[in-house]
Design a protein around this nucleic acid. Sequence first.
DNA 1: AAAGCTAACAACCGCACCCCT
DNA 2: TAGGGGTGCGGTTGTTAGCTT
Length: 320
Amino acid sequence: MVRPPCCDKEGVKKGPWTPEEDLVLVSYIQEHGPGNWRAVPTRTGLMRCSKSCRLRWTNYLRPGIKRGNFTDQEEKLIIHLQALLGNRWAAIASYLPERTDNDIKNYWNTHLKRKLQSGGDGAGKPPAQRPPSGRGGCRRTSTWRAARCEALTPLDDCKPQQQDAAAAVDAAGAGAMGGGGGEDSPASSSSGASQCSPSAAAAAGPYVLTTENISRMLDGWAGRKGRGGGTPGTPGGAESASTGSSDASEVSYGGAAVASAAPSGGAGNRPLFEYETKPAVAAQQMPLSAIESWLFDDDSHFHHVQSASLLDATPMDYPE
DNA sequence: AAAGCTAACAACCGCACCCCT
DNA sequence: TAGGGGTGCGGTTGTTAGCTT
């Protein structure tokens, strides 16, 4: 079937977003939450394609995004996961809670691919031999949970992992995610040049309206929502906690958290914006630390995978 | 100081999937 | 069950900052 363009090509603005546009978008999402992107341009008056709005939000404005240098751990994790999963950046990103798929993809294309091609570091194994990420094929992901679950397909079933993982997430969330500056997950163990600190944001982004100002806005929103005092000013930490569902639990990323962590009663304790963050989902079923240790443990797993076509392999020996 | 080159990042495009009717 | 709308994902391109000559 022939589909019409998602937006009217005429009158649709392209190119870099301005601070004003960012502000409008963030304000709108504060009010309505992410989702229904189709309606965003018309409701906000933004002369942007709905996809562009979604992309801007998920890749840049969404709180909890860590910008800046990738740590060694993150790098290795990406390398391994890329070897395991191929170019399924969304699935890979689900293991790096604070990184976007776009970010990881860019990093891969600009750093790691070249690094590996030129011999790379010890962790570098030729990422070849992976089944193409081709559209259709393995891709069934529509949510972070789905992506992550899919990534773990060889495990046969994610469910058994969920409770343990949820507990782990709770623990990690209290420290690493929620408190900011945790060190359990690869992502959160990064250097200080990230984590949405105003200075980092300023360095990373071209706008005055970067994380700092947005975080202020989110702060205000948190106040309006009657909660969220916990981690003011740091979108990176505030929302990525893992407990509970959300006020808009049906929206986007919140599914997994809702399903396993807080069936209903968590309304009073849920972090704001969690429903547009993926960390909870990512770690829900497989603690990052566990994955991390498995990945970094040694190369044996990798070789096993390499030789046995991971995606067809029997359940792997993930750590408990 | 200027020009050229390279790397890094943001954003766009098109396709595929999911969900609803 | 089929069709269509909405959304997510991955590939690719464009822009800009930093570096080298």
